[in-house]
Design a protein around this nucleic acid. Structure first.
Lengths: 228, 228
DNA sequence: GACCCTCCTGTTGCATGCAACGATGTACGC
DNA sequence: GCGTACATCGTTGCATGCAACAGGAGGGTC
């Protein structure tokens, strides 16, 4: 068997996934040693991964005390969403000004509500695909700094984004909305694109503000097959 | 003498300052060992600091090769400024909606062009004071996430911001502009505040886009008392 | 003369050991 | 019974040692 020792990057990826899927429950405390043993590495790469996660706001390191999986409270989520809206609306202007017709056509085709390419029933997969749309927009905008900041914001709202897709017909709506936005951009209709995108994100945000930690717990319990 | 061993946080602060003041020259390569020796610590806290700096875009770690001090090119600076404008304009709306009259009056008084409290001839001091204004705005806006992102952007443009204040009468203008913005906010004149702030930042940005790396080098040489 | 192969050096990546610090439980004084 | 001093334990923070890998110099071959 070929099981190479996990690197710090691997530890980071797996840890983040554990947090986003609520297997490491928000509010619970973990120790570097425990994680090191769990992943079969020493504390060093674990520390490195935890520091990254801390800078991204997923965990809080209490000096000399331990590491706390962060709660995600509704107020903070709302702030992230507001930042996201502000940044993405700015991106739209750049896209309108800079992106080529070919790129925008490709983007629109990739979210054609008729064919629905890449559609999946896995929430995590669809959430990831949703992210690629917004990431692509940032890329087409051409402002790498803004793209990276959006990436950062994305880390924080990823958990909620997944929940978003658990709602009925949210997948269809996403194809429609993304498609419509791409069409507006292709027509260089900035105002229209802004209106659509604002509403599109607002739809997600509304879900975010509705989810309480209690709901998250239930979702987690269901995912793990445990009684709620 | 009380000279406690520097912590990873200290190393981070000092390293960032070295980079921002161009004592670690952009494009040059440094090694963990060299920095560790320089700061009188082991490689561990240096690594930690470098990873943070890398995530913030100040350095680039080449795997198994070394650490590269990042160039700051004009294009990227422009992107940072654009992000800053977008975020700060959003902050203004929050301030108009949330901040109290008392806080805004205090802010205006703190930048009264008549008395010019806290005025200094040291560029770095004035740049820091300028930052406090914008930081205070973000605080009054109440969106901590946005404030933190602005803080991040601030790190990247800090070097240029300092250069900004080396220009003649830029200090006077800053007092005037900050005061006017605070007055607009106090009058809950969002549009006016937006216009002023946009122009205020644009003034700085113009400087930023003008400075070439060559100029930065000269400034650095002068600051260090070396021949250009 | 050009190219390739090999060895060597420099650097990072990770493991491990030690010290410092916070928290908790306990015995003691009142 | 209640509050306080103290010892113990758990955890992080840092130092150090070792291994793996990239790059370059040198010699050999075609």
């Amino acid at each position: 068997m070929n099981t190479p020792r996990p690197s710090a990057q691997d530890v980071y990826d797996r840890l983040r996934e554990l947090i986003l899927s609520f297997e490491l429950y928000p509010g619970s405390r973990v120790t570097e040693s425990a994680l090191a043993e769990r992943f079969g590495v020493s504390r060093t790469p674990v520390r490195e991964a935890l520091q990254r996660l801390a800078s991204e706001g997923h965990v809080t390191v209490l000096p000399k005390q331990g590491v706390l999986i962060r709660q995600l409270d509704a107020a903070e989520l709302a702030q992230h969403y507001r930042v996201r809206v502000v940044l993405e609306l700015a991106v739209l202007a750049d896209v309108c000004a800079n992106a080529s017709d070919a790129d925008l056509r490709a983007l629109a085709a990739d979210w054609d509500p008729q064919t629905q390419p890449g559609r999946s029933d896995d929430f995590a997969v669809m959430a990831a695909r949703d992210e690629t749309f917004h990431r692509r927009l940032a890329e087409l905008g051409g402002n790498r700094v803004m793209a990276q900041l959006l990436e950062q914001v994305g880390h924080h709202i990823r958990a909620v984004r997944r929940l978003d897709f658990t709602l009925n017909d949210r997948v269809e709506r996403t194809y429609e909305e993304h498609h419509a936005i791409a069409q507006c951009l292709l027509a260089r209709d900035l105002r229209g694109a802004r209106r659509l995108l604002r509403r599109h994100i607002e739809n997600s945000r509304r879900v975010a503000s509705a989810v309480s930690l209690e709901q998250l717990r239930r979702v987690r319990a269901a995912a793990l097959g445990e009684p709620g």
